[in-house]
């Protein structure tokens, strides 16, 4: 009674090896991540300092800091977020709360999801054609931010829609049954309870917008631009700007004899910028979640 049979032993062996394989794979993806980050920080350590952040590149990009690029990236990311977030959230509200479930809505939803997979270089060409040339904005921060916004809209729409549909239907029914209009329901109940999910979409947008080179290369980012050091309002809306991702690309491939530490330093700053923004949004999300109970 209750003894292990050979078949049971076999099953347990399979169980154990399955677990080991999955664990190995997990370790396999963590190790390179740690190695890359450590290696980058180690290589960048000679240049990492406040001066590096706050001064402009000198000696044909071979010395100095990255201030214009850092500021440019912040401008691009924040502006694209300011454009994409409201548009994306409102479109998602329409698609999730108002649109009837018919073939047109389903097609639009499918198109939005597919749009998220369009390569960024295609968005770059679209931005060049639509904003820089057709709309006549010219190569500028505005045009680049618009291009980044178009690129990240699908992500924002998708994640906002998901967070909206995570709000239980019974809340909406409760509202409608005392005569609330859809907008009153959305304003009063649905939105306050889906903000945390929306933030996830914003985090993704920021990460992607900060890291992309292609869309801004044609639409507003430049090789070098001198701006006042330490002045956060140094760029105008219609100015061209430097950006971290673009800067990293140029000093690693276009300029000869750049000291090794410079590109690594730039990469570390780019990574930290993204992580910092993510950390803020995650903190905000945790805070909002903790107040939500149902």
């Amino acid at each position: 009674m209750f003894q292990e049979t050979p078949y049971i032993r076999h099953k347990l062996r399979v169980e154990k090896s399955a677990k080991t394989v999955f664990l190995l794979m997990t370790v396999l993806i963590i190790i390179p991540l740690i190695m890359i980050v450590t290696y980058m920080v180690y290589k960048a350590s000679p240049v990492l300092s406040m001066d590096f952040l706050l001064t402009k590149p000198t000696n044909g990009m071979r010395q100095g800091g990255i201030w214009p690029a850092l500021l440019g990236t912040l401008y691009l990311v924040l502006m694209s977020l300011c454009i994409a977030a409201p548009v994306g959230v409102m479109a998602a509200i329409y698609l999730n709360e108002y649109a009837k479930d018919n073939w047109l809505t389903r097609t639009v939803n499918l198109a939005v999801i597919n749009l998220a997979g369009v390569p960024s270089i295609v968005h770059a060409l679209f931005g060049l054609g639509a904003f820089v040339i057709f709309a006549g904005i010219g190569r500028s921060i505005l045009a680049a931010a618009l291009t980044l916004a178009v690129m990240t809209l699908p992500v924002i729409i998708t994640s906002t829609k998901e967070s909206l549909s995570a709000v239980p239907m019974s809340f909406r029914e409760a509202c409608w049954n005392v005569g609330a209009t859809k907008w009153q329901t959305i304003r009063g109940i649905v939105l306050p309870n889906s903000v945390s999910g929306m933030l996830t979409g914003f985090i993704l947008e920021v990460s992607r917008a900060a890291g992309e080179t292609a869309p801004i290369m044609f639409t507003g980012a430049v090789f070098y631009k001198a701006i006042a050091e330490g002045d956060v309002f140094a760029y105008g809306l219609l100015d061209q700007c430097m950006a971290l991702s673009m800067h990293l690309f140029t000093i690693s491939t276009q300029v000869p004899n750049v000291p090794e530490a410079l590109p690594y330093g730039t990469a570390v700053v780019l990574l930290s910028t993204v992580l910092a923004v993510n950390a803020i949004s995650i903190g905000l999300r945790v805070y909002i979640r903790s107040r939500k109970k149902w």
Binding site: F171, A174, N177, I189, K293
Partner: peptide
């Protein structure tokens, strides 16, 4: 007005 099977107070 309507009252449902599952209580649905608002959050």
């Amino acid at each position: 007005g309507m009252v449902f099977q599952r209580p649905n107070p608002l959050p």
